[in-house]
Nucleic acid binder design. Sequence first.
DNA 1: TTAGGGTTAG
Length: 563
Amino acid sequence: MHRLRHHAALASSRLLVRDNQRITALARAGDVAAARRVFDAMPRRDAVSWNALLTALWRAGRDLPAARSLFDDMPSRNVISWNSIIAGCLAHGDLAAASAYFARAPRRNVASWNAMLAGLVRLGSMEDARALFEQMPERNVVSYTTMVDGLARCGEVASARELFDAMPTRNLVSWAAMISGYVDNNMLEEARKLFEAMPEKNVVACTAMITGYCKEGDLQNARRLFDGIRAKDVISWNAIISGYVHNGLGEEATKLYIIMLREGIKPDHATLIALLTACSSLALLRQGRSTHAVVIKAMLESSISICNALMTMYSKCGNVDESELVFMSLKSQDIVSWNTIIAAYAQHGRYQKVIALFHEMELCGLIPNDITFLSMLSSCGHAGRVDESLKLFDLMSSKYAISPRAEHYACIVDILSRAGQLEKACSYIKEMPSEAEKNVWGTLLCASQTHGNVQLGELAAKMLVLSDFESSGAYVMLSNIYAAAGMWSEVNRVRSQMKEKGVKKQPGHSWTEIADKVHMFVGGDASHPEMDMILSELRKISFHMQIVTDKTQMMEELAQECG
DNA sequence: TTAGGGTTAG
């Protein structure tokens, strides 16, 4: 009888453990409803069962209210229950609720403090995080690493390093956090030194370094490091693939993607975004479409960021209508979606549509940001709307409290320069908060050439050369300006300066994809076997483009007049 | 409880 009872108790506790494990497994797979069913059907539950469901509700189910009400119903709570509800509130950005639970918790361990610390860091409240860190009764490697990461993320790399050096013990996570902190703050040399000093290099640290090399355009070292990783995971693949994409090597990125698939790594949504970005920058519509098919197969069409990348791809491949279809297919659009669709129409010269979208966006309750204004300004520029662009520029700061960045000034300078209002353009450059960037002077120099303004041309070229000695374009344009004005001795002076400094002009190039073959065109190169035909076709196209542009402008103006 | 990749402009 005694033995029988003992067996029954053993079986029941085995069942309990099994059910608890099932709840956790189902939650990990994202099926909260099934986890809840298992929980409801359990003959006996312990603290582990309650805690497992609690975490499942806010993490996999993203349902904080449900988690909070379960927490209230719990027959008893241990420190893990309290830590879970605190972490849940923080994961949902509810700092106030998290702090309230933290204050009410009858017992706190290092993990409770660490959870609060991580929450504060994630929300960017570094001052509060620092205060909490100082207050902690006990700190472990996690507490220190969280602080190192947080400090580096808000740009305080030196303090981060100081703390890193002061840590009583460090683990792989601490090293990776510090290295990635350097990479995020564009301190590759420091990152590299620390990486070399790392006693044991793992895939995370390697991936951070790969990102760093890619940021510097050093794909050779990035690739060498990548090839050396034994256990490559999807994130390291994404780092190298997107590295190639952002350095204009979309083809290499695509090749790597194929290898990745062959090695049995399943692409995730970051992989697909990188691929779509490659298609956008190379205008590969066919490949873009097939990537769209992969997105559908992977059931990622409801992801906003994927759709935003799809929209860009279609638009850059010349297909605004499909871009808009994707936009409409979204259940809810975020600021990036709106910026993307506005940019799409801006790039296609549809000024009136851009304005309409801008108003529609506001009606939907979204506040335009600095990037929205860049698209708007660029659209004004293409449509030659000088007055409207100046109004928008003012509106930016007066109504939306966005301070214009160098890029916004660059737009305005570009618009004014094209319109021949060079003096006014120059006054905007002088108004710029930071020192005028290279491209702003470049714009002015370019305009000085078209409008034959020697004085401003000289000024712009001087500024350009001061900021960048390699700037071959500046010399060429300045010499053209002098030549147009008949100032031949000045022309000779610039030419000999170029020779002295060994400046060489980088030829411009473009490419197009026809029937799976990429054709490259380089400025001044007429070696293509069908050059005559290409040129005559180009003349036809530019003739048609002018007609279409005029027609579009007429239609839009007509539509505006009709209200 | 801590670390790596990922959408918009130019």
